[in-house]
Amino acid sequence: MADTRDIEMTVNGESHAANVETRTSLGDFLRHGLGLTGTHMGCEHGVCGACTVMVDGEAVRSCLMLAVQANGHEVTTVEGLAEDDGTMSALQEAFWKHHGLQCGFCTPGMLTSLTAFLRDNPDPSERDVREAISGNICRCTGYQGIVDAALDVAKTMQKGS
């Protein structure tokens, strides 16, 4: 018999209850249990960062966390970054403006990682941003558009504050 648990978690502000097999990763649960396929599984060993989501506001690898471990916690995925009316976040807009994505596969992990990073580090240097996304592999862009997008958002945030 498969080992299962009843769990509840809040994802992008909505609460979900489900019965999951305990070996199921959080990433697989979000994708296949809840149909939130914006979170991408790239390596399933914690290096590529594509599956990064926020749990209680902190960016974590959803391939290195079991779904059952998120029981009772709040999860934010890429689908939860835009406003309810669909308006993209400043970071999403900046990725668009700076050509920070090509194939789009690493993008959700980049966005969730940088959303958390910029919240905690509102005035980063280029070096800081490059280290922050050193745990997110992008094969397409050479990272430059992503770095520029993050720095642009930080600059705008500084002006606004």
Partner: peptide
């Protein structure tokens, strides 16, 4: 040590 996302766990 790793990256900030892995240090969070």
């Amino acid at each position: 040590v790793g990256h900030f996302q892995t240090r969070n766990r």
